[in-house]
Design a protein around this nucleic acid. Structure first.
Length: 471
DNA sequence: GGCGGAAAGG
DNA sequence: CCTTTCCGCC
């Protein structure tokens, strides 16, 4: 039989709202590039595991935001092997694949910590992100030299969230892995990571707005569903994550989803997207096992668990625009600086700066409807087509001793520098938050206007920006 | 353990 | 293009 491997099984049956060019880099889906099409990618898989409580013992978020530890390398490799129908997969190979992500800057190694890697979410999220507010988003700004250029790029969830000011109605579960059949935009093409130099070659966390780079050769930026945010409920089908309360109660096994928390406090679109209870007050959820088995349970928004993030999640709507609370430096947008994002590096440890550990005891996830879980059971391997007949030998786990001290190596080797755009038009429209520059712990940044009308306005704005840029 | 080159496969 | 597989090196 063929290897249905779990790949497909894990994919939600419903194409749902997945839209091309959004949120995750195309290579992440690479539908057509691989014969089988929908080959899940390793980092997706990793994220997947990270979201499943049942794998907490195997791999889990730990440390800085986006950082995770592979607690049981062999097991992860085994699971990956199962998923990919590669019975002989092992950590060595898997790690090679992981290393491969360094270049893409999807991941990077946390030096000094064994089996510890860190997602560069900014990359993941920004890729393909429609132009929109990036220019004014705190997140965006944070990663630029707008504010003096010395600020640490903000890859915090809040910042990320700010990139998704508008949210479509994504109440239906959609999966990150759901690349379904859906049709891509015009021409069926999808944005490629390559289209975003700032994502593929710049410094970590480089966040030059795509719009400024002219990354939309064929896809008008506005063709994308605004606001599709993989980090928001509904974006994924992985809804096993316990709901997290708006506050900052962190379930022991799941870190809070800052975005979600933030969303719950947002005025409208966002909060309405939150699963019931989430927007409200959130309660805890029994960490129980997720027994659900439906990918996209009817109407139940999928849940996404974000990596640990020690920053404060507090972010009242009242804070919007009054960044004062943050106390960070408020800097006016220097005219002329426009969107020239130089973007500093963030990754390699710089990121959120603090290296403290995330909360592990706080609990407070909202209970999730067991039935709304999409399952990512990596169990059904019924048929792995192709050559690998030995799927059965997945059981072969060798125990390996992973003990070692890591070595510090500067990976400057491939760090490419982003070409600074020195002649970009100044930010089109000032935004209150624009001046807020988080330094360390990224401050809560709220999306600016969320109103539809504003959306239109912004679109227009973006268009103008593009014009300027291209002229 | 971790890294990255190289080659091969899908 | 994204691994997978091998491998030598640190």
């Amino acid at each position: 039989m063929d290897c249905n491997c779990v790949s497909d099984l894990l994919l939600p049956p419903v194409p749902a709202l997945w839209t091309p060019g959004i949120a995750f880099p195309e290579w992440a889906y690479k539908p057509e590039s691989s014969p089988g099409s929908r080959q899940i990618q390793l980092w997706h898989f990793i994220l997947e595991l990270l979201q499943k409580e049942e794998y907490q013992g195997v791999i889990a978020w730990q440390g800085d935001y986006g950082e995770f530890v592979i607690k049981d390398p062999d097991e992860v490799a085994r699971l990956w092997g199962i998923r990919k129908c590669k019975p002989h997969m092992n950590y060595d190979k898997l790690s090679r694949a992981l290393r491969y992500y360094y270049n893409k800057r999807i991941l990077h190694k946390t030096k000094g910590k064994r089996f510890t890697y860190k997602f560069n979410f900014s990359k993941v999220v920004l890729v393909n992100y429609p132009i929109l507010d990036m220019a004014s988003s705190p997140f965006f700004l944070a990663q630029n030299h707008f504010n003096g250029g010395s600020t640490t790029p903000d890859c915090s969830p809040e910042a990320i969230q700010s990139l998704f000011p508008r949210l479509p109605d994504t109440s239906r579960g959609t999966s990150l892995f759901d690349r379904g059949t859906t049709a891509p935009g015009p021409e069926g093409d999808k944005l490629r990571l390559d289209s975003f130099p700032f994502l593929s070659s710049g410094a970590p966390c480089y966040s030059k707005p795509p719009s400024l780079l002219g990354p939309y050769p064929r896809n008008p930026p506005f063709d994308y569903p605004w606001g599709f945010n993989p980090y928001l409920p509904g974006a994924f089908s992985l809804n096993n994550c316990p709901k997290l309360p708006p506050g900052s109660l962190y379930p022991s096994q799941f870190y809070p989803n800052p975005l979600q928390s933030s969303l719950s406090q947002l005025p409208h679109p966002f909060s309405s997207l939150l699963p019931p209870g989430e927007a409200g007050g959130g309660e805890r959820g029994a960490a129980g096992q997720t027994g659900g088995t439906n990918g996209t349970a009817g109407g139940q928004p999928a849940r996404l668990c974000l990596p640990p993030y020690q920053g404060s999640l507090s972010m009242g709507r009242t804070d919007i625009g009054s960044g004062a609370t943050l106390g960070e430096r408020v800097e006016p947008n220097p005219p002329g600086m426009g969107l020239s994002l130089g973007l500093g590096a963030v990754s390699l440890g710089a990121g959120t700066g603090t290296d403290q550990q995330s909360p592990t005891e706080r609990r407070g996830g909202v209970k999730q409807d067991p039935e709304s879980d999409s399952d990512l059971e990596i169990t059904d391997l019924s048929d792995c087509s192709s050559d690998n007949e030995n799927e059965h030998e997945f059981g072969i786990r060798k125990e390996s001793s992973h003990a070692n001290r890591s070595q510090l190596v500067l990976d400057g080797k491939k760090g490419s520098v982003l070409p600074p755009i020195s002649s970009l038009p100044p930010p089109v429209s000032p935004h209150p938050l624009k001046s807020l520059m988080p330094i360390t712990p990224p401050p809560p940044s709220l999306p600016r206007s969320l109103s539809p009308s504003m959306a239109l306005h912004e679109r227009h704005r973006e268009t103008e920006t593009l014009k300027l840029i291209h002229s």
